[in-house]
Structure formats: structure tokens, C-alpha cells
Design a protein around this nucleic acid. Structure first.
Lengths: 210, 210
DNA sequence: GTGTGTGAATGTTTTCACAGCG
DNA sequence: CGCTGTGAAAACATTCACACAC
């Protein structure tokens, strides 16, 4: 039953959610770990084991009820509520992030955007009015912000992290290509396509060398 | 010495490269696995073991020469050459990617951009003239493209993947929030901030529940 | 018969701990 | 001495294989 759940399992949950949403749209009602495995290129055993960390959602001889498993997963993953985010840094990168997010994010909402440049205050970034960074603490409280997203220049990242941490934000997504430090109860994740490309280069190269 | 190198190790190489670049800029000449571990929040033993898969780069009693290790890593990772990329899909997402990339990518270069919409052909996306998708095979050959990047609507992703695969492209970065299939010698990586946010939501939730 | 849930077995990754080099 | 490089041990993750439920 309920033990310490491996971090890798958590990383796979979004994949399960994704494929189940797809199946649901296709009006599939029941799915076996066999079929899920075929779609996701993973072994049925792994899927069953992963799900078993959270409970017993299947029926022997049949498989999993798609709608049921979907709603259980959403609950487990904390996606039954909306999460409020702030964007810090509204330059080209910041605007691109807002733009991108509008098309792909469900359950996560940018509710405020900040910049350090007073000249930008009051301008619109998408449908959000840019505020000055000095108003951050106030807004985090009143709009109950859960997640901070950083799109500031490398030199300002640590400062921004500190401010978010001081305001009690426990999750930060960092789009700047620099590492930062924070207390260990604060979860920081760096998003950087450059890193992904580098691992691709490694494999491409060994293709030629092999 | 040289055995099968674990995939996790490959994923960590960019991190090592990153921190070494930083140290080099700080004019640090020698660094121990101890210090690297402190900076990267990982154990010294893991760093030594990881590096040992590729050779012996350190000096006992001293540590690693930063410049030497840097250049060795660059060689190992295939970053001594430039890699050519094409962007497929030049809508808002595609333009945002080009924009973002200009500031963060070293060693990776977008050399062409394609769209299926004839109305967009000839327009500029950043400093690249948009071409019609029908010209893709020709361009991949003449400009020796290594990596394809997808920013097309979900419904068109599989088609775009097929075209890239037919042209011999072995590495694809997919920014669309859908899974795709390709022969297993083709490396596809999905980049999706939504997935990262979902794992964050899980942890935030358990913070409240615990 | 069919497919889940799960201990046990296997495989992989991380950490330990120390010989040996500078 | 100090710190690397590395077998061996420990921890962790995946896969197997089967009892049991439908």
C-alpha cells in the first residue's frame, strides 16, 4: 500500500494523465495496462506497479475504467484545483512564456506579471497589466500565489528567487539559464531547451562515431 | 574503463559543463569533486564516478583542471561543432522559440524555418525567411540539418515527424503537447512546461496534506 | 479466460571506502 | 597528506510470475 513513492513515478504521472485524456476523448471506457504500455512504449508491469503506489484502480479480468482513473490521477496529482502563478520578468522571454502558456496550460494560471523596469509598469503582457516588482509581496498574499516563474536576466535570478522565498512561495520555475539556490523545502526547476539539445548532440555524435 | 554509459549520466553532463563554464569565468583553475558537489548539490562520489566513465581527468591530491575538463567534456558531448536545426511551424509558439533561442543557445543554430501556410512564405521569423514545408527535403540536404524542432499544432505533429524521419533526421525536439511515434533510432524529446508544473502541483499539494 | 496487484528476482544507479598517486 | 579512480556494497527501480478476483 502507501509507502514512500519514488520520484520517478511522480515524473511519469503526467504521461499517464495525458494518454488517459486522449483515450477519454476517443470515448474509450476501459483500458488495460497492456494497451497503455503499447501506447506509451513502456511495460505493462511498470504501469501497474506505478499505479499501485496510490491505490487499486483496476478490475481483474477487465482493466482500468478510463474516467475513474483519470479523476483519481487528477486528485492524486493535485489538479482538481487551479494553481496561481506569477511571472517575473516581462521582456521578450517573459512575453513568449505567457504566449506559449495560454495555449498549453490547463489548471495553471498566470495572475500577475512583474518587472523591475518602471517604464514597463502599466503596459500589458498578454491580458495582464505589468506591475512593479516592489508590489510583489503584496500581490503574492492577496492573490494567493502558488508558483513563481522566472524570466529575468541571469544576474537578477538569485534576487528574484530570494524575494519569492521570502514571500513564502514554495515552487519556482526558472527559465533563465542559470542555477540558483533556495532552502530545500522550496522546489526549483530549471527549464532549458539548451540542456535537452546538448544530450541530443551527444547521441548524434556517437551515431557518427559508432 | 569504457563500458555502457548510463543514460542518467548523459543527462548530468550538461550540468557539469554549465558549472565548469562558470568556474572558468571566475578564473578558478582547479576544482575538486568536493567543491563541484557543493555547488551542484550532489555527492562528490557521483561526480567522480560519472566522469570516470569517460576517462581519467583529475590529479590525485589536487582535483580537476577546469579548462582541461571543460574541453574534454565539450569533446565528449559533441559540442566542438555546430549543429544545424530547422524549425517547423512559425506561429506564435514557433516565433517565441526562435526568440528565446537567440539568447540561450550556443552551438545550436536555426538555419531554416518552415510553415504549411503559403501566406506566411517569404515573411521573416527573426532573421530567417519562412519557406513552404514542401521545400523541407531539399533544404535538409543542402543545409545538412541535424535536428528538427516542432512547433506545429497537435494535429500536424505526426505528419511533420514523418517528413523529418523520411529526410533522415535523427533528432527531434517537440514543443507541441502531444506524443508522437518514430523509428527507435530517431530520438524524440518532448519539451512541455505543463508537465513540469504538474509534478510541482503534486509536491505542493502533499505539502498541504502532510 | 483475462488482467490486476504484488512479493520476489533481477537489473541499474548511487554510495561507500580505500588503494594508490601526486 | 589530499583527492582521484574504482571495485564492492547498499539502495533503488524495473521486470517477472503468479495468486486471486471478475
Amino acid at each position: 500500500m502507501s509507502q514512500q513513492i519514488p520520484e520517478v513515478v511522480i515524473f511519469r504521472l503526467p504521461t499517464y494523465l495525458y494518454i488517459l485524456n486522449l483515450l477519454d476523448e476517443e470515448n474509450v471506457e476501459i483500458v488495460s495496462s497492456q494497451e497503455l504500455g503499447a501506447r506509451l512504449q513502456m511495460t505493462p508491469a511498470q504501469i501497474r506497479k506505478d499505479l499501485s503506489y496510490f491505490g487499486k484502480f483496476g478490475k481483474q479480468g477487465k482493466g482500468y475504467n478510463v474516467k475513474l482513473l483519470l479523476s483519481e490521477l487528477r486528485r492524486i496529482m493535485g489538479l482538481e484545483r487551479e494553481w496561481n502563478m506569477v511571472l517575473i520578468g516581462t521582456g521578450r522571454l517573459g512575453k513568449a512564456i505567457l504566449d506559449y502558456s495560454r495555449m498549453t496550460l490547463k489548471g495553471f494560471k498566470y495572475v500577475a506579471a512583474f518587472d523591475i523596469d518602471p517604464a514597463l509598469v502599466g503596459e500589458m503582457a498578454g491580458d495582464i497589466a505589468i506591475q512593479h516588482i516592489s508590489e510583489l509581496p503584496q500581490t503574492i498574499k492577496t492573490k494567493s500565489i502558488d508558483i513563481g516563474v522566472l524570466a529575468v536576466p541571469p544576474s537578477q535570478v538569485q534576487q528574484a528567487v530570494n524575494q519569492l522565498v521570502d514571500c513564502g512561495v514554495k515552487a519556482i520555475l526558472n527559465y533563465a539559464p542559470v542555477a540558483t539556490q533556495a532552502p530545500k523545502d522550496v522546489r526549483i526547476r530549471k527549464v532549458d531547451p539548451g540542456l535537452v539539445l546538448q544530450t541530443m548532440a551527444y547521441h548524434l555524435q556517437s551515431l557518427g562515431t559508432a
